[in-house]
Design a protein around this nucleic acid. Structure first.
Lengths: 258, 258
DNA sequence: ATCGCTAATTTGCCAGACAAGCGGCTAGCG
DNA sequence: CGCTAGCCGCTTGTCTGGCAAATTAGCGAT
């Protein structure tokens, strides 16, 4: 059984000892996380198709040079995201795509690690276009002082940094987070984690092809002001406009790329 | 160390020959599932508060009379749902509520196993009121023959059974599933699993207090017809009306209960 | 052809051990 | 006296090896 290195680089050195491979693993990342990442990207990228069966635990664990328990815990993580399902005798099989939890931050990250499907990005924006304007309306009706403060802080950070920097993308994400949070609806806040990840990945994708032509701050400021003023209609409209513009940017970036 | 039975009576499975194992659990359900269920309900119900630490793996595994590996895999499941986080030396601590994945079907089930929070139910309906009308609009624009067939089949099942039966609730769920599916947007389909679970639990909650006073079939039929006809405006309006009515029923059921 | 039984294969679970990471304590130093 | 660096011990992380359970596939009898 061939051995597969779990960390990205290193194709030159023959893997002799586990200690060596462990040193290449970034410090905070647990081994099972690396395994889950490896298998997850393989599945999401299509290298392993739905319906296919992963080779047995013993064989696969040995191929990755990890213990069976670590491998099993990694598979358990994937099971929780709906990517695979394990049954005795049948083995662990890759689930059909409609069972995947596409809104899970990890799955999103794996999906964007390769060349993301344009249709998938369009779908993500469609979801944002449904949820975020409605959330902005609710936020305008329910926001309190802390919510406004959080929005303003995120906006200030967006002004300070640009979207080309990691800090800028984080601020963008914080802004959308703050809006969702201001709805005071726990289920929407849960969606915030997914939508936030989608925002980050799509903006990064935009940056990949060319510099962003439009300053995003005014659009965000309009949303913020409308919510702070308690104007539900204006908040919804401003958020809708913001997402439309972001979609335009992303779409043209995709066209420019290919 | 006291031992806690893990049994989760399902009451629907025929009493098979049970191997005299330590802790009886219904067939098909894996041990780690029972552990995750036990810990999950304890956390979601508030018996273990956010910030608190679970007793160590060794102690807890022994208390439940399971091996440490099975216990660890259960904890890994909870980690995937955002309920806990494990760090060496610090132990596994319960995450704050806004980190929980409240849309996960299991988490929803655990939340509804006790007395569900009325505010939580209101939030779920708010989410449905945002997503499903918009989805109905998209469905009306994009549905194909198979989508219409699936909707009609679910509707027929709703007519055959009542919402008081398990089959009826399943049909209801299939209907909403079919609508989301007809959008041909993968991310919305992902939400379908969560929303479907929410629909099932809230309808069951309605039934708990009194018989449903209103026949839900005409409302659903209006949605189905509008989508089949390709009338986006009518589909959106019909779905909005449906959810409003369902919310009314649930609200009055909650008022009657307490 | 159908049913029931057996065997084989794969995951599920168990037991014990050691490694790694990390929080806190303590001793040494300025 | 305050502060920092290093040690200690606690908790999770991983490894090893083995056995049990479940379920599919094949086979044989009816």
């Amino acid at each position: 059984m061939r051995r597969v290195p779990l960390d990205t680089e290193d194709a030159s050195i023959e893997p002799q000892k586990r200690a060596e491979r462990r040193s290449e693993r970034s410090t905070g990342r647990r081994l099972r996380g690396a395994i889950a990442h490896y298998l997850g990207t393989a599945i999401v990228s299509g290298a392993i198709r739905p319906g296919e069966r992963l080779t047995g635990e013993v064989a696969n664990a040995e191929a990755l040079d990890v213990s069976r328990s670590a491998y099993r815990e990694a598979v358990r993580v994937l099971t929780g995201k709906g990517l695979v399902e394990s049954r005795t005798k049948a083995g662990t099989i890759v689930q059909p795509r409609n069972r995947w939890n596409l809104l899970d931050p990890d799955v999103l990250a794996w999906a964007f690690s390769g060349e993301p499907d344009p249709a998938f990005i369009r779908n993500l924006f469609e979801l944002r276009a449904i949820v975020e304007p409605a959330a902005a309306r609710l936020a305008a009706e329910r926001r309190d002082k802390d919510d406004i403060k959080a929005m303003r802080a995120a906006l200030a950070n967006m002004r300070r940094h640009t979207l080309a920097t990691e800090a800028g993308r984080l601020a963008d994400r914080q802004f959308h987070d703050a809006v969702l949070q201001a709805t005071h609806n726990d289920t929407l806040v849960t969606l915030s984690a997914s939508i936030g990840a989608a925002v980050a990945w799509t903006t990064q994708f935009k940056q990949r092809t060319r510099a962003l032509p439009r300053d995003p701050v005014p659009d965000h400021a309009r949303v913020s002001d409308a919510i702070a003023a308690g104007d539900a209609d204006a908040a919804e409209a401003a958020m809708r406009a913001l997402i439309d513009l972001a979609l335009d940017d992303t779409r043209s970036a995709m066209n420019a790329a290919g």
